[in-house]
Nucleic acid binder design. Structure first.
Lengths: 197, 197
DNA sequence: TTGAACCTAACGAACGTTCGTGTACTTTTG
DNA sequence: CAAAAGTACACGAACGTTCGTTAGGTTCAA
């Protein structure tokens, strides 16, 4: 079939990962086969194994790349000296931008992490849990300082995270509304609420 | 292995569907095998086929039962003579209650519908699209009547639907907060917003 | 005694992965 | 400078397993 096309900026392994993220998103991890992936990459299935060790490794790389970016962002924002409500807004903006930039990868890490093999599965779950706790802590600070309404912080975090992940659906119909507009809409609704005060 | 236990209220087929919903939620449709399902039901894999025609039929039933309830609810609410913001609130309350009651089924129909076979796949997608449009129309009415802030209605719908589906995560740690509390928290945040006005 | 419910055994298809080999560069050596 | 050795990458064939499903016989309640 021929070689995998690359330039100096991107390795053949990275090409496979990018295509895998797309395929896993489209079909789901289990339903996507290595033969299909090979087709998309333009090579025979066996040839993939010159670059990767297993199908599971692909999922692993995708999930942990995303998780790492989340953690880095949280480190930065926690260090900032701004109001809690502004921190919440900043986190939301990061999440939205991140989804727009790494659409396939984020989708896969959100929906297919169950298929990670141990011990990575536990590790991944821990990272997500920690992230949510740190997010909730910021909201609780905001409540104490009366910047944020008295709400159950962990519930608020769940709502915000899931609300943001709704962008995937939007992404399918790009034409209708652009990324920046979408971001503003989301912030308005989630931070300000629907009611016209 | 023995017979499937039933009473007069619930057929053997329904027992299989209930267990299938649980298994599909836990493992995903593709990763869940008929042999596993048989184990859970307490029977050999082949015996399942005395009650169902295929694995796909199980997914079909689960997805369309949920979709039907959504549509019925929308019919009712559209017919009501109340304010738009109150209709939105009612829809949200329905969605939350529905998730709490039919946790596994809703989860499966949300995440595994991709694996439906045609022509049911197209049918399902149409139903969901229609539902979102009707929801968006209610929000737009609210905007016209100045009950609701000027926001992009389709975006608002996506946010609300995904936010509500976040309850799944909550469901895993039932002890911490009960269903009614959760419902109030969600309405407060989604309708009223986070900011303390 | 009939029919629903279950069993064991087996089917072909698809899966992830391994193997041995071929080929075309690149590097090392005489 | 040319031959040899090494490396990177791709191939087709095959592996052992698991999958959904079917065929045909058995059990058991009504």
């Amino acid at each position: 079939m021929g070689r995998i096309k690359t330039d100096t900026n991107i390795s053949r392994k990275e090409v496979i990962i990018i295509k895998a993220a797309e395929l896993f998103k489209e079909k789901g991890f289990k339903a996507a086969s290595m033969r299909e992936l090979a087709d998309v990459v333009g090579v025979e299935a066996a040839s993939l194994y010159n670059h990767i060790s297993s199908k599971g490794e692909l999922l692993h790389i995708i999930c942990f790349d995303v998780a790492e970016r989340y953690m880095k962002m949280m480190d930065d924002i926690e260090a900032e000296k701004t109001s809690s409500i502004f921190k919440v807004e900043k986190i939301l903006r990061f999440l939205i931008t991140n989804i727009v930039l790494y659409y396939n990868e984020v989708h896969v890490s959100d929906r297919e992490w169950k298929h990670l093999a141990e011990p990575f599965l536990s590790d991944y779950q821990n990272q997500r849990r920690t992230f949510r706790r740190r997010f909730a802590a910021i909201i609780e600070q905001g409540i104490k300082k009366k910047e944020i309404k008295k709400v159950d912080a962990p519930t608020a975090v769940l709502i915000l995270l899931h609300a943001v992940s709704g962008i995937e659906s939007w992404h399918r119909s790009k034409e209708k509304i652009n990324g920046k507009e979408l971001e503003e809409s989301m912030i308005t609704i989630l931070v300000g609420g629907l009611v016209n005060h």
